[in-house]
Nucleic acid binder design. Structure first.
Lengths: 344, 344
DNA sequence: ATTTAGTCTGCAATCGTTCTCAGAGAACGT
DNA sequence: ACGTTCTCTGAGAACGATTGCAGACTAAAT
């Protein structure tokens, strides 16, 4: 850990090039009113000393940091990891660095993280807020010069957002199951304080009513989106006097819980129970038999969020934009006719 | 996006508390020589104005940023995502923010990322370098005040490192397969420029020789650790005149490729082929039948790396430390006796 | 009463940029 | 020849914190 390379500053480049500090700054920042001959001399000197502007100093002067924040509940969830990757791939070539933070789905911790990011003067924020209704959330978001919501509705924040059209994919999945003869279908999803789950719950009741199948609150579970909650919810639903013949899990964690629960009960897929996952994962993609899934392009989600953010950074007064991305139901081999019909 | 809240600085707190700027700074930083009564007044004023020190300004003065970088090949790989999460959970309570960057396993791109981090004056770096032998890597690492290598050997860097004991887990896996009667076992792993794969390759040849089973270079594939490479390598190995009866994949991506390849060939597990994965994932944990795996605690890896980094930040001159963490082979249901024996 | 030591506080320099402002030349028109 | 405009450059003031140094005040010791 030797520290021989002292950092080289504008002053040294200026001396090397035989000009003043301000001229060096102008030359390096592509500003007008610098003679070509001088600009060349500066560029040469800068290269020779391998000068790199100090981000902190620049940041103090300009108020920008060239860094943006990403707040999600859990970066180790492949869902958010995929989004983070795509966002980084969009931001990095534009010179922005990505700072991540895990809220653990705790609204007050999330608020603290946002304040910390604020203090670091990040140029923008991409956030999948834990609770859309948290007190002061809109203000905290608006405190950022630029902010993009990841599949969240916070109207008062007047922020840009990237949304998934959960309704279409889920409706198609329900239709598919009903077409197979299912009349009792359960939905396991997250709390209504996050748009994705809220939309799923609405869609579920709308579709079940329209398709004239069981539409009972007991079949629609809304808990935290953890593996354990998924396991628990599925267990309770299967212990109902009239259990469902098909279960849809609202995200990958819940699906993992669902999968573990039916494994522990020794249920066969799809003979004993039909299942559908929301979100494609390694498991749904590679399992044999392949698993039915409501897919969406997570990379596109991350990319779109990053692009919206860059747009807003460039043009802070632009009207808020929403981007709606599709979800697609893909039938594979984890759904079939319900057990009663198979027996008949 | 209203911007009403102008940032409140030391000056305003000083005015509010009726003292000078320096006194406020001292009071807030728990320095001696501040009367209790004054300190209280400052703290009250600070709270009233909800003062937050400007990170950029402090950074310029002190040279520290309270941020550390994490460089991995791909943050969307659950393996690195899990490490990132654990590292963040250790660093965040200590006031450090985490900046991530994806090298895409490209050594020159990685070098550029490190320079960018350097320029941001990050207080430390955690890195799973793409190529241990890359020119100048050791110097670039040493340029950081603190650095921790993630399962990499770069002796000249004199850096701290967290290593996995790949040998034990893999040896046990090979022993298990040989005990079952396998005499031709293939290993699909990454390039030797990364410690994990290098150790696996050595271990593979050592163990095969000792156990007196086939020890041919054709059965040991060393490529990039991507799903496609895994698929390709497995295909080629299975097309050999004498194909293996068991295959071990060196990481989760390669295992995904392996899994897809044998699915496409319609091979049954474990009747037609025994397989073992390195790294536990959703797939290996939840698949039915459950899959044999060489596990390690990724969270522990991330945590240990973060802790080593914090130690070194606090004590820059301390001698480099290595932490070796275990790997464990767990037999489940994806390995059995080879086809020939089963037929007999 | 007067030194002396010990506490406390404020002034001002500093970190490395960016950016305003003013001044120096050159070019040009009258 | 003399303004006027235009192009270029440098001096110096920010940005908001930390910190060395000197001075002021208090308390103790002579």
């Amino acid at each position: 850990m030797a520290r021989p390379r002292k950092t080289v500053t504008l002053k040294e480049v200026a001396r090397e090039a035989g000009v003043s500090i301000s001229t060096v700054s102008r030359a390096l920042n592509d500003q007008p009113f610098v003679r070509d001959e001088v600009r060349d001399r500066v560029l040469t000197a800068s290269k020779a000393l391998s000068y790199r502007p100090d981000v902190a100093a620049r940041s103090m002067r300009t108020g920008t940091t060239g860094a943006v924040g990403l707040v999600v509940s859990d970066i180790s969830n492949p869902l958010f990891a995929a989004i983070a990757k795509a966002a980084d791939e969009t931001l990095s070539p534009r010179g922005y660095a990505l700072m991540i933070a895990n809220s653990s789905n705790d609204a007050s911790h999330e608020a603290e993280l946002m304040r910390a990011f604020q203090q670091r003067r990040l140029d923008g924020l991409i956030i999948a807020a834990a609770d859309e209704g948290a007190a002061g959330l809109a203000e905290r978001i608006a405190d950022f010069q630029a902010a993009v919501l990841l599949d969240r509705d916070v109207p008062e924040a007047q922020a840009d957002s990237v949304l998934s059209d959960h309704r279409t994919g889920l409706t198609d999945a329900l239709q598919h199951l009903v077409d197979l003869g299912h009349e009792r279908i359960a939905l396991i999803t997250g709390t209504a304080s996050q748009r994705g789950s809220r939309v799923r719950i609405q869609t579920y009741f709308d579709a079940c009513r329209r398709l004239k199948v069981a539409c009972e609150p007991a079949l629609c579970r809304s808990e935290q989106m953890t593996v354990d909650d998924g396991y628990q919810s599925v267990s309770e639903v299967l212990d109902l006097p009239e259990p469902p013949t098909a279960i849809i899990a609202g995200n990958n964690q819940l699906f993992a819980g669902l999968f573990a629960a039916i494994r522990d009960r020794g249920l066969r897929i799809p003979e004993d129970l039909s299942i559908v996952a929301c979100e494609e994962t390694e498991l749904t993609a590679l399992h044999r038999p392949p698993l039915d899934v409501v897919r969406r392009d997570l990379a596109e989600l991350g990319r779109a969020a990053a692009e919206l953010l860059l747009e807003r950074i460039d043009e802070p007064t632009r009207a808020p934009r929403q981007i709606l991305l599709p979800t697609v139901f893909e039938a594979r081999a984890s759904s079939d006719r319900p057990p009663a019909e198979l027996a008949a």
